[in-house]
Design a protein around this nucleic acid. Structure first.
Lengths: 216, 216
DNA sequence: GCAAAAGTGTTTGAGGTACACCCATGC
DNA sequence: GCATGGGTGTACCTCAAACACTTTTGC
């Protein structure tokens, strides 16, 4: 017990909600806990903040440790600090949202995690701690803050079809939109361009592949 | 030194950005620091989170201690945790935004504060810690999240003129709008009603006083 | 009477919404 | 040939923006 204080101090962690879009479906990265508490439940990747490390730096470190993702979109969601959210001690966590294109996501199980896995946002398993609450808030934040341009720039893979983009947008905004209106809107935004390639494979007409326009 | 941990723990505080609107001008409550560090500079009201107290409860407590405000709008802004933001020890603060109508705001200097005072949002004094950064982010949050209905419900006093409401809206959104368009918009929203009273006093035509419509 | 803020409608343009059919492929 | 998703244009309506003059008061 090397560190003493005149008043009790909480522990502070960061947790990262890693969103990605696979074929238009919105997914979240979760880690299966191997240790007490909540052994066997799934949890957001995260860990303790080092004493001389900024919150954002800690979030980057956790993101890199779990996904080997080096860059991209990382935004603070907020702090969650209910006194009994962790049975070990008072733990306040600062949650971050990361957006990672599916084709840049490489994840392996970390040292204290039995398994890492992507889950569809609407088919979540039982979650550890208050992580369901954090995820609900993360989804609300995406809905309120992320527009189509953000989705194209931060969440879509290198090449994508317009239907995939529309499905991703609908999953995030929790609305449905007309295909023609969606594409008309995209034209005015001038944020995607056709690559000339097609995406074959379905029992239907091949879809054109688009990419994000590099911002000037 | 009664509290010991196997790993170093940061201290956690809450700081509250108390916004109010006086005659249409957006103002912030600041406390003059009487103690080291940053003695004599102005700071956001705040203090340490008790070990068995939720973050929001701590924010309510600080708000009540400084302003004797019991209810109203209180929303988390986010966590600020740069390692050297406080010279005493590692301190992570969770900032909250409070909206308090001017006529409900009663504030007195607290025990560890030499003075408490409202400042116009664009005429801030030198601030302690990273509080200027917190205030900038708080203003951005208001701009992005607060609509006219929120302003009417949470920030306007019991009686107000439409010009005061418009000035408050312009201060928050950082835009200017046409008087006729603003009032037309208000009509469709159906959130204010005339009281029949007038606000006398200027060297000009008296303004009608309005109040917020009680939500059904 | 003049300075100062209050109050009041119409026109226009942009953007969002509703809506239906043909096309290319796999089986 | 049929099932499956891909791709395309028009009409309407709503809402935001631009814009100027009269009214009531204090001095």
């Amino acid at each position: 017990m090397a560190y003493s204080y005149a008043y009790p101090h909480p522990a502070v962690t960061v947790d990262v909600v890693v969103f990605t879009a696979d074929e238009g479906a919105l997914e979240v990265l979760l880690i299966k806990r191997g240790e007490w508490p909540h052994t066997g439940k799934w949890a957001l990747p995260g860990g303790f903040v080092e004493i001389d490390e900024s919150l954002k730096r800690a979030a980057w470190r956790e993101l890199r440790e779990e996904t080997s993702v080096q860059a991209g979109y990382l935004e603070q969601l907020g702090a969650f600090g209910h006194p009994d959210r962790d049975p070990r001690e008072r733990v306040i966590t600062v949650a971050y949202i990361a957006l990672v294109p599916f084709d840049r996501l490489r994840f392996e199980a970390g040292s204290d995690a039995a398994d890492a896995k992507l889950f569809a946002i609407d088919e979540l398993p039982e979650l550890a701690f208050d992580h369901r609450k954090i995820l609900r808030r993360a989804k609300e934040r995406l809905r309120d803050k992320l527009d189509i341009a953000d989705i194209v720039r931060q969440l879509m893979p290198d090449r994508f079809t317009l239907s995939e983009l529309q499905r991703t947008h609908e999953a995030i905004s929790n609305t449905e939109s007309d295909k023609r209106n969606f594409r008309k809107k995209l034209k005015t935004l001038e944020i995607v361009e056709a690559t000339g390639e097609n995406k074959e494979g379905g029992a239907h007409r091949p879809a054109r592949l688009y990419r994000a326009v590099k911002k000037t």
